[in-house]
Nucleic acid binder design. Structure first.
Lengths: 120, 120
DNA sequence: TGAATATTCAACCATGTGGTTTAGTATAAG
DNA sequence: CTTATACTAAACCACATGGTTGAATATTCA
């Protein structure tokens, strides 16, 4: 097991993987079992289970064992810590906030286009 | 060199190391050369230089070569992107639960899943 | 010119990471 | 009791990471 000197090490490491970020996204909707978390991904169940463990070790996910199922729920406290760290640099980007908002808007529009494409 | 599917992969990975976070902290005060960035740390100069490279590849630092010195400055745009990602979970740590925000988050997640499907 | 400085590059090492497969442990259901 | 389900554990693999050292390159200074 890796020892982290700061929560931020573990949290940012956990967030640096798209599978794990997507898992957090799904947990934002509701609590999910390991199997439910694993299903959307094209990887072995054991592999997905290891990703959940990384999220759990980073304190981003809490697990409740209920019978043979492990129910996972999001715990956002560590996300708040990461956000607090990032916000210390806010003055460096707030000057260009309009540009960022424009960029995010464009990304949203791109996603909408993708949604349209899939429907077709 | 690692290929990242999203900026967030590279940015969060860069932030997951305390040396690199400290370097960003120093760059928040003023522009610094590689040597100035390296000095505070108990590691070889080449080692520190590699950390700067990671920050640069993540788009967090811009380099200007000036004679034999490489001047580095913070570029916060990618930090803003990371912050924007984190803030989508804000409702989970800020007590106020805004129904509209929750709805928007769920919509965003649906779009992301679609984007992933299209990539595959 | 020659020496010192600032930096990268290349090779190397130990350990970490994301992934797999196979086996093992509980628990639930027939 | 037996079988299916949910999950972890362990062993393994290829490759990335963080670190080192030593040599190479470019620039400045005396």
């Amino acid at each position: 097991m890796v020892e982290y000197s700061s929560h931020l090490d573990a949290v940012f490491h956990a967030l640096a993987d798209p599978t794990r970020r997507a898992m957090l996204g799904h947990l934002a909707a509701r609590e999910l079992t390991i199997r439910e978390l694993a299903t959307p991904f094209r990887m072995s169940f054991a592999g997905a289970s290891k990703h959940v463990r990384v999220l759990e070790n980073a304190g981003l996910v809490r697990r409740t064992i209920r019978g043979r199922s492990h129910l996972c729920r999001l715990d956002a406290a560590r996300l708040a810590e990461a956000n607090a760290w990032l916000r210390r640099y806010e003055r460096f980007w707030s000057a260009k906030l309009d540009a960022l908002e424009a960029l995010l808007l464009e990304e949203d529009l791109a996603k909408e286009d993708l949604a349209k494409k899939v429907k077709e």
